[in-house]
Design a protein around this nucleic acid. Structure first.
Lengths: 345, 345
DNA sequence: AAGCACATTCAAAGCGCTTTGGTCAGCACA
DNA sequence: TGTGCTGACCAAAGCGCTTTGAATGTGCTT
């Protein structure tokens, strides 16, 4: 059933039917009701592609999920981020077009999306320190919102990010206040913007108390459970193991916990651990009581916010008058069972 | 830059340019080269929507991610499944249109996708025991492949599934052979097809050795880490705790491991655990050596296979001559460190 | 030299929608 | 009676592509 058929079945023109369905005023009330009823009865729903072609609006947003090159890993945070974003999109009638792609190929994907006009805007995930994609998207004139921030570029683009620097600084100070001096950071890959900011926050927190981090205690890699396990094992095997650790994700933290258990080391007593917690739905950090002391910021909410910014950017491109729309979320520090005073030597 | 402009800039008709780009034979070699070069030079890429409208093919596949109702959880399994599927789609030029939606609303989404003609086919995830969506999609005439199977319907639709029954039967027998008699099953939500099959396999395995499972040892819920933890705690708190457990996912297994650690119970010695392992990229079950004894089947590969079936179904709908295209994958039983002989009472 | 097949190219219709620029009654006003 | 509105509707163009049905030019046959 298409517009033409529907119009014919009603003895009306396509114009009138289209207007009735889209809520234009120049249609008699009675006619509108009749049209609406017929549309429902015939289960009519306008052909998205035709509509998009006619209006120039795709009513779709592109999300590009980077596969960590070579390793081909897909980070579960994207699932929650998208779930959050889709809540917003649903309210506004947008669909999600997903591309999963090796991060070396991303330029091409964005270029394609722009040239093919298949989306009205895109979300840019996991920006690297000097991400080229930001300039590319600006060039292409494709509206976009970055989830996270680059570090070596001016922050003059729309983004939603967590104040990672402040969060990690605060967590570091919290540990130092508990008496810890040797603190390790088990971070994400160092070319990622947030990894850089987390390390900066950590270093700042140490410096604020007159401490300098031991470079040997700064680890960085893809944030898998296996990596957390390996990192913890390495740290515990040192002649002078740290008394506290900061982890960049709950998944890492679970791996670290497993390594600690393997070694008979108890979290919160023998070694303290604070993790960053995206509040992943299948990986909640405890229920009533937090398992890990954690910096918590829901990535799902970030998705919701990013989508809101993007939709606004698309629907009211000029409101901003050149002002970037940005949102810097603060993480909460939640005290759980994985931290305690530094063991006296 | 659109076709018209490109044609004008070359002094050719749209027809010829279109044909040159799409590889039709009736174009002179020299002309084709010229067109291709110009297209590249102008970074021309055909408007997807216009193309879709003209051809009737959307070159897109719909994936519907169910949010567990009320709980609003998004299972990370989908991330890996989609990553796998997208490898296939990429090779064939399809995009993914994603809907994340409460599972009570799914009917509407599929109906919409069909009416709006925005996708050429869909993947149906996590079918329930008597899933209505299968009949719906057949009615709508929208090509689809099911990831998993219903249990109370004839298996006469295209699907990719793991032989969960056999896998769980085998794992159960493996545990019994190690001397275990009291075995628990920590399963996914019981309305899901695979949960039913896993339980069936478990019961069969027990029966094959003349045992009947204790109904109190059959637990089922959303497969989160927290649930795994709670389930294990409950089991261990019993006066007659099981000596072995089957878990329906590594995420559950990690939660169970945590609970075991909390209680000072050691896996593989005090209690044995076999888990189903989707081989999630951020959640690998160990590296060189498996952490958990596990039934492993990569969900990513399942995604790849499902996408292949679907693309084939779309592009050659009649080859099958009514035969359903189905793929039943077998899970490997991988022996790790979480199983051992039953402790002698 | 006429006729024909073949290789190239093109104009125009059509996909299903929105939107511009009308038309046509009916009514009030002078 | 004629003019000007206004409310309700419609025909047709246009979005950017594919595809049908012709047209054109070329070389070969007879």
């Amino acid at each position: 059933m298409n517009l033409k058929d529907l119009a014919a079945s009603l003895g009306l023109s396509q114009t009138t039917v289209s207007r009735a369905l889209n809520g234009y005023p120049e249609v008699a009330q009675a006619t509108r009701q009749r049209v609406l009823a017929a549309a429902r009865a015939h289960n009519y729903s306008p052909n998205t592609r035709a509509k998009a072609l006619a209006t120039g609006r795709a009513m779709a947003i592109g999300h590009v999920i980077p596969l960590a090159t070579s390793t081909e890993l897909v980070n579960p945070v994207f699932a929650d981020f998208i779930a959050g974003a889709s809540e917003t999109y649903m309210r506004h009638g947008y669909d999600i077009v997903l591309s999963v792609i090796g991060d070396d190929d991303e330029d091409r994907v964005y270029r394609d999306m722009a040239a093919k006009r298949m989306v009205d805007g895109v979300i840019l995930q996991s920006p690297t320190t000097d991400d080229r994609r930001i300039a590319l998207l600006r060039d292409l004139g494709l509206p976009f919102v970055v989830h996270g921030r680059a570090t070596d570029l001016p922050d003059d683009y729309p983004y939603v990010d967590v104040n990672n620097r402040r969060a990690f600084k605060r967590a570091t100070e919290f540990l130092i206040d508990l008496g810890h001096r040797r603190i390790a950071l088990v971070n994400g890959r160092s070319q990622l913007g947030y990894a850089v900011r987390r390390q900066a926050g950590f270093v700042e927190g140490m410096a604020a108390r007159g401490l300098t981090p031991d470079p040997d205690l700064l680890l960085a890699d893809e944030m898998t459970e296996g990596y957390g396990h390996a990192a913890m094992r390495t740290l515990l095997a040192r002649p002078d193991p740290p008394t506290a650790v900061l982890a960049a994700s709950t998944i890492i933290a679970f791996g670290m916990r497993r390594a600690a258990d393997d070694a008979g080391v108890r979290l919160g007593r023998d070694i303290s651990l604070i993790t960053y917690d995206d509040d992943l739905s299948y990986f909640r950090n405890g229920g009533a009581e937090a398992v890990f002391t954690a910096l918590r910021s829901s990535v799902r909410m970030a998705g919701r916010r990013a989508a809101e910014l993007l939709v606004d950017l698309i629907e009211r491109p000029h409101d901003a008058a050149g002002l970037p729309r940005q949102d810097l979320l603060e993480a909460e520090l939640i005290v759980g069972r994985s931290t305690g005073p530094a063991p006296s030597a």
